[in-house]
């Protein structure tokens, strides 16, 4: 039973993290909490890709002398893609925080219902 399930455990954990992020973005009214939830969602996507790269019994994708077997190293492609995704995530978070600062300067609040209320006035 456990043998059967453990092959999918990483995907389920990534899905749970993604759902936490989705819940935060859909259900919380505070914009900073939405941003934090977006970061959690992004981490879920990164973990999912890293889980796809995994091979049983394989080592890190750095060549060890005398070990030329393809199945001895994990797949380097998702690692390379996620490396850039992390840095891009940091800069999108920076832009989002800058936008939040502007919103706070303009409306004086970061609660979404109050912002919508003030936009109607």
């Amino acid at each position: 039973m456990w043998e059967n399930l453990s092959g999918y455990l990483n995907y389920w954990l990534a899905a749970v993290l993604l759902l936490i992020g989705l819940y935060g973005m859909l259900g919380r009214p505070n914009l900073v909490k939405k941003l934090m939830a977006m970061n959690i969602l992004q981490v879920a996507a990164i973990l999912f890709f890293i889980a796809l790269a995994e091979k049983t019994g394989a080592t890190a994708p750095i060549e060890v002398k005398g070990l030329h077997d393809v199945s001895a190293y994990v797949n380097p492609l998702p690692h390379a893609l996620m490396l850039t995704a992390i840095v891009v995530g940091v800069s999108t978070t920076g832009v989002a925080l800058a936008l939040l600062i502007r919103i706070h300067r303009h409306f004086g609040t970061l609660e979404e219902p109050e912002i919508l209320e003030r936009m109607r006035l």
Partner: peptide
């Protein structure tokens, strides 16, 4: 590029 951009983001966010 990464050094410059991260320092710029930090400066922009803390300059208010």
């Amino acid at each position: 590029a990464v050094t410059g951009v991260l320092v710029l983001i930090f400066d922009a966010l803390t300059a208010w």
